[in-house]
Write a protein that binds this DNA or RNA. Sequence first.
DNA 1: TCTGGGGTCCTAGGACCC
DNA 2: TCTGGGGTCCTAGGACCC
Length: 420
Amino acid sequence: MFALVDVNSFYASCETVFRPDLRGLPVVVLSNNDGCVIARSAEAKKLDIKMGVPYFQMKDLIRKHRVQVFSSNYALYADMSNRVMTTLEEMAPAVEIYSIDEAFMNVSGVSNCMSLERFGRDVRDRVQRETHLTVGVGIAQTKTLAKLANHAAKKWSKTGGVLDLSNIDRQRKLMSMVPVEDVWGVGRRISKKLNLMGIETALHLAECSTWVMRKHFNVVLERTVRELRGEPCLELEEFSPTKQQIVCSRSFSSRITEYEQMRQAICAYAERAAEKLRGERQYCRQIAVFLRTSPHVANEVFYGNQAMGKLLTPSNDTRDIIRVAIEALDRIWIAGHRYMKAGVMLGDFYSQGVAQLNLFDEFRPQPNSAALMHVIDGVNQSGKGKLWFAGQGIDKPWAMKRQMLSPAYTTRYSDLPVVK
DNA sequence: TCTGGGGTCCTAGGACCC
DNA sequence: TCTGGGGTCCTAGGACCC
């Protein structure tokens, strides 16, 4: 038996926890660069503010309804997420942290001592008490059904935010009311195709032949069908598998046209990516760089490209990663474009670094690499200051825009933006 | 003027091997 | 008349998730 717990309007709720004066007002949180809406409070949803709408398109609406707008403050959200997850881990033998605001819990043994619904309410009350955040809880025999239950718990207020969907008749009744596109794992493309085949509700999908689904689509959808019927195909993954890829990319605050600025940005992304790689205790051999202009501008030619470089010896030394990234950048940089976004991707990971020196490797592993990286990461995590490579530059005019950032209520001073 | 960032899994097809 | 069989690895692209 699985429970899926997720926080209602997570980012927006994190902002209001520390601002009780905002309760009852519509609140939205914007993506990086204050680009578009990525979270809305219940009141903002009522105003029909859609997910993903560009901020500049809704300024009138915001003024009219006194919508409270925040830049995203990931340091705050990550900290609040940790608090929620810690509480959940104290309440179940196994928890899978599925995303920043969601977790699956193993609740198989619970029904021996209390009803599943009672347990769901306990989870909700305790998280509320300890973090001032409200969660929804869905419970069922498979992850896909638990997701569905959670979805319904939020949609129908009479559930009080908790729904035990372990009863087969209740499952069928709910599935007959849920459109197929609301099923976990069914996105826009597949739901369109399913609709054309006459499959419109979750129940229709659950009653499809697995063989036909596999033939017309793929095994992923076949598993979804089985899960909807109560046959578990997905397990609880308590320990996150090691990452296979690390990406660090940002849109720029304004378009980049100068090579020097692009080099600084790539250098900064490479540094951040290398830091994440060391956080995973991994070493990489592949370093790729991509850049692109805006796809939205009508009278400009779109340019997007990417290039990959390889290290012969796996490394997590920022200096190696910057060097290969800049070499890759130089292969795809074309002057004259107005670049909107760029990024650095790391791949081909190894759990050990210098396994074997290659005789023909022209770049030797850097001496004392591990010690130097340890010092850099130590300083940067201490909250006392930041160390960075000179290649990033000092002014960083390309750095992202966050004009409505809330204070770092729970985290350190150094997470605040520097105001000059 | 202005539109996010970071991941995963699966499949098909080509290169290459014996 | 008439061109083997079976396998692995890699990459690109498509779909999905939050």
